[in-house]
Design a protein around this nucleic acid. Structure first.
Lengths: 150, 150
DNA sequence: TCAGACGGTCAACGCGGTTGTCGGTTGCCT
DNA sequence: AGGCAACCGACAACCGCGTTGACCGTCTGA
């Protein structure tokens, strides 16, 4: 019916999902947690355990990444690793159990949200939508980088 | 395949669309034009022709809206209306031809994008996806407000 | 008639990110 | 060995976008 432009429609959907996710994380003991924090945790889990390595993954500068990681450090989502061996310039980070918990929780909430939507529009149609979106983003130029430039 | 979380998947799609839209508008004579500018123009076309009226539509303060409208004024997307009659406090705005052009262009680019995606995944599946998203956002709590709080 | 609500504007600030700079390490190449 | 470019992490200043707070002028209704 409503004849919404495509990007507007997608924005509304992502807003809905992001709001739900943010609220749920807040109510479960993770206030202030933002999407970029989650992407940073995933990058660290992927072995990119320094600010300089995380930065290009998030599409921001290393200084920006350092601030972000400082917050994760303050909130005990990550911790500094022993620096006894190896390169003395690096301050490698490790994801704490609390950090792993919030990653798990985020995935769980998103899975629940997808179930709710499936119940609303039918599981088959929801499955089609997911696949369509996956194919579209797979064909797009957006790779691993999380944040665009616009 | 990729088993992406739902919100991440939607974010990638909206990023793809927004990037395409932004690039296209820039290359067609509208550099610096951001989504909020478009929503502001639509609000004005809808009859909300002052900063105070636009602000709640965008979910920002009237001061924030005033700055945004000042940019639209500087770039000649809107113009001040004659203030001969009526309330002397109000500074009503009108969308200029240039403003209407960018709104039309934005819708056109989004329609083209949807066609491209339809060609990629099949028109029937694309149609299903659109309807699914429309139903989901229709059932959500997000109304006319453009910008959320997270 | 006048108190209060409302429209618009100015100033200061906060947040998230940027550029620029710097000191300390490291690895490589002579 | 020695020297130097490349690199890591930190600090400071700045920018864009939006905020809060204050203010002035105008309108309106009890």
């Amino acid at each position: 019916m409503s004849d919404l432009p495509l990007v507007r429609l997608l924005s509304l959907a992502v807003t809905e999902g992001l709001t739900k996710l943010h609220d749920e994380l807040t109510s479960r003991g993770h206030p202030g947690f933002r999407p970029a924090h989650g992407y940073a945790l995933l990058a660290i889990l992927d072995g990119h355990d320094t600010a300089s390595a995380v930065a290009p993954r998030l599409g921001i500068t290393k200084q920006g990444a350092a601030k972000l990681l400082q917050w994760l450090l303050d909130e005990r989502y990550v911790a500094h690793l022993d620096r006894s061996t190896g390169d003395a310039r690096r301050r490698p980070l490790a994801v704490t159990p609390r950090g792993r918990e919030v990653v798990r929780l985020s995935a769980e909430v998103q899975a629940q949200l997808e179930e709710q939507w499936a119940a609303l529009v039918g599981p088959r149609r929801m499955g089609t939508s997911r696949k369509v979106l996956e194919e579209v983003v797979a064909a797009s130029s957006v790779d691993g980088v999380t944040r665009p430039g616009w």
